[in-house]
């Protein structure tokens, strides 16, 4: 079965790789947004040096990590969830369900394929562009990069697991677009995409860091920036893994309920 899910992931990768113009446009957008946010941060850190405990170079690096992870984690949509909801709405999900493949595993593999392409396509180049314009605080230590890679993998899993729940909501709501939009906005805010969660005021910061969205951007960024290192980094990864496991299990449970109790649409 491993071979099968691997093949699904490769297909997900290839599928996005064919949209070259869209990828180029995405890189351009990420770079422009990165520049705009960078200058806003420079102005902000000028007024409040060491906001959230970040130096200006670290804050700028944080911006570009965010831009690099925006597409792979599908924080603003663009992942598999729209397709899943459409298949549920149209009844095409029936085709997926009678197959000897696991629905969640299938979409996880497919979404990882997409994310892998977007990491390569839309992740690397914006960071490179950012590092040409600004002085970024990227570490030289290979261990930090290794931990960063693991943190990204776990963050992508958490992001997938949340979006899988959103997608399954279509079994009950038929049109899950509303839920999807609410979750995107919440994710954008609580992942730390707008501002690092450490820079939030007191209680809000604590709450935000305890929520699963922190695993998507805040934790990978802090691991790369060395804000979490050694045992601290490992603990952060463990929390990410915990969220990933819990949310995947929730998706599995919801999937079982959905496929047993709910009408499959269309004759």
């Amino acid at each position: 079965m491993g071979g099968f899910y691997g093949a699904v992931a490769i297909r997900g990768f290839r599928r996005y790789a064919t949209y070259r113009i869209a990828t180029a446009a995405g890189i351009f957008t990420n770079t422009v947004f990165g520049l705009i946010i960078s200058y806003s941060y420079i102005a902000l850190w000028d007024q409040r040096p060491h906001l959230g405990g970040y130096s200006e170079a670290q804050a700028l690096t944080y911006v570009w990590i965010g831009q690099a992870l925006l597409a792979p984690t599908a924080l603003m949509g663009g992942g598999f969830e729209n397709e899943l909801m459409e298949r549920i709405r149209s009844g095409a999900i029936a085709v997926d369900l009678y197959r000897p493949a696991d629905l969640q595993g299938w979409w996880l593999a497919s979404d990882f394929g997409r994310a892998a392409f977007q990491l390569a396509g839309r992740g690397v180049l914006p960071i490179a562009a950012g590092s040409l314009v600004f002085d970024l605080a990227l570490p030289a230590d290979p261990v930090a990069w290794l931990l960063f890679a693991v943190a990204i993998g776990l963050g992508l899993t958490v992001s997938f697991a949340i979006r899988f729940l959103v997608g399954l909501s279509a079994f009950w709501l038929l049109d899950g677009a509303g839920v999807a939009q609410i979750v995107w906005i919440v994710a954008l805010f609580f992942s730390g995409m707008l501002l690092p969660l450490n820079a939030f005021p007191g209680t809000l910061s604590a709450v935000a860091q305890a929520l699963p969205w922190a695993a998507i951007l805040q934790v990978p960024a802090d691991v790369l920036l060395g804000r979490r290192h050694g045992a601290g980094a490992l603990a952060a990864l463990a929390v990410q893994a915990g969220w990933a496991a819990a949310l995947l299990a929730a998706g599995r449970l919801l999937q079982a309920v959905a496929t047993r109790r709910v009408v499959v649409q269309g004759g």
Binding site: M1, D102, L103, Q104, R252, Q255, A256, T259
Partner: peptide, 9 residues
């Protein structure tokens, strides 16, 4: 729990 989705091995 979803017994239909158990690992297939």
């Amino acid at each position: 729990m979803p017994d239909t989705y158990d690992t297939h091995d």
